[in-house]
Nucleic acid binder design. Sequence first.
DNA 1: TTGAAAGCGCTAACAC
DNA 2: GTGTTAGCGCTTTCAA
Lengths: 332, 332
Amino acid sequence: MSSRPTLRDVARLSGVSEISVSRVMRNAPNISVKLRSRVEAAAQELGYTPNRLAGGLKSQTSGLIAVVVPSMSNNVFPEVVDGIDRILSQAGRRTVLGLTQYDGDREERIIRDLLSWSPSGIILAGLEHSDASCKMLAQADIPVVEIMDIDGTPIDTAIGISQRNAARAMADHLLDRGYQRIGYIGAWGEAPSRSLKRRLAFEERLSECGTPLAARLIAPDASSISLGRACCSQILNDTPSLDALFFANDDLAVGGLLHCMAHGIEVPHQLALAGFNGIDFVDAMPQQLTTIQTPRDKMGEAAALRLLEHHDTGASHQTIDLGFSLLARDTT
Amino acid sequence: MSSRPTLRDVARLSGVSEISVSRVMRNAPNISVKLRSRVEAAAQELGYTPNRLAGGLKSQTSGLIAVVVPSMSNNVFPEVVDGIDRILSQAGRRTVLGLTQYDGDREERIIRDLLSWSPSGIILAGLEHSDASCKMLAQADIPVVEIMDIDGTPIDTAIGISQRNAARAMADHLLDRGYQRIGYIGAWGEAPSRSLKRRLAFEERLSECGTPLAARLIAPDASSISLGRACCSQILNDTPSLDALFFANDDLAVGGLLHCMAHGIEVPHQLALAGFNGIDFVDAMPQQLTTIQTPRDKMGEAAALRLLEHHDTGASHQTIDLGFSLLARDTT
DNA sequence: TTGAAAGCGCTAACAC
DNA sequence: GTGTTAGCGCTTTCAA
């Protein structure tokens, strides 16, 4: 049985021109009810599916949205992607995914590859990209939304939070609470530039207040609860005098909390713990973790909405701050 | 300042034919070193990016791979997608995403929409799809891989585990340990057909062994640790005599464990707990949770590999069992 | 409100 | 090894 039916087949069957079928399929205006129903019947009968490759080629606008994030293994990005896709699919657009695995070279290759699909827009995590990447993005002449971080100059639009301010807020919180010997634990070898920014801002703030960071441990491995547990153990072994720990994310922090529970370390009296992100499961722990709540699904949704409304403006160098909130709870 | 350069521009600049440029860009065979370098220089100079919409239209094979899963908010799918993309991106293929939100109608629309991109293959979660969906998939004449579940008849290839056998294994485990009053907790209103299959197989096995399920609680909400905690509290309230609980997933089970910790319920002596999936964080809990370990990233990788190798066979009705393992640990 | 012509950018099929 | 020709399936003009 024949291959996939085309517009031509539908046109022949319904006795109208191809362009009329095209208009019906796209819900273009100025189509009589009669013609529409005739065409729809024929399309139905043939099981016609439009070929978006052809449509996109001709119209120079595919409706694909490229999404470039580091990894789905990091708890924050699935939520972002969920938010993006929720908005896009309502609008008949599709998400094409690229996962960089925190590798800048790979990001560049992915961007090049994604642009070859003539996407109608692109969403990227972070503000740091290679020169070549930036050049490609500028030339592509499509809306570019950079999410997560707003501490820097966006190519077009940045939507997220100030990672630096969030870190400084946590520093202030710990100092307000009277902690003096503060340590920091990170993961991924600090490949995500946002972690690095946060740590630097955190250290900077502590120093400004005359209480410099007392210890630091950056594991090269992927972040996980188990890793947090191991790192917590190690940093306390190396620097027993610590009275507070700030973790690069909640997974690590929960690991720290579990370490303390297992070893009878009283939280927060002997050791205070703070995380970052506000992942669902921190609420469920025996002690509610102090953390910074970030609006991850909002970031995805806002980025997608921005792309959808973008038929007007060009590159706008706009920054949208979605804000964070410091949840001061049981562990500090 | 022209728009995006085309093959023609590169051909003109390098003084060769368009088709030669095309061959160079695709690394086709039979190209002299000299011609290749000349073309590459020109492409470089112009910042040429191929237009895959055009290429795909002509060659009838886009290289896009459609991936249809319920949601990224469910811990299991991000890992699957990570596995898929890891393999695909190596092979120069792209993931186009569709999230069904556990809605069959939406799945059907998504499949229709994704097929309009002429994907080279499609990966779907689960074996249950609407008649219309199955028809479209059959007509599309592309490799179809259904992942997660192998209890049923695949359209083409199924890769995953037997959800039923896994549930029966857990039933046997709990019975072996001597538990008699066993309860079950689920979420999502059991929209994921795999949960339902598991529960039914679990109940069936318990009944076969003369120890029917003592209580059951299916929450309509999205699964989460907090929900597990609440459900555990409720089911114990309704049926205090329970001596074991099987949860639809690890999130719920961890919630149950936290409830027990908070209320001084001794695990497993007063109450045994078992989860499903083998999510990373269960290892980190104060007590290691008994669970069924499922090979989620393997499922993604295997599905992607299957699509890549698929230039030979047609629809094969093949089933690939990746197996699970029951991790009998502290909580049973 | 409908249609005819032209061509988006690329590659398969066939020369040479 | 390289080039010529034709056309993938659709939509943008422009005309009626």
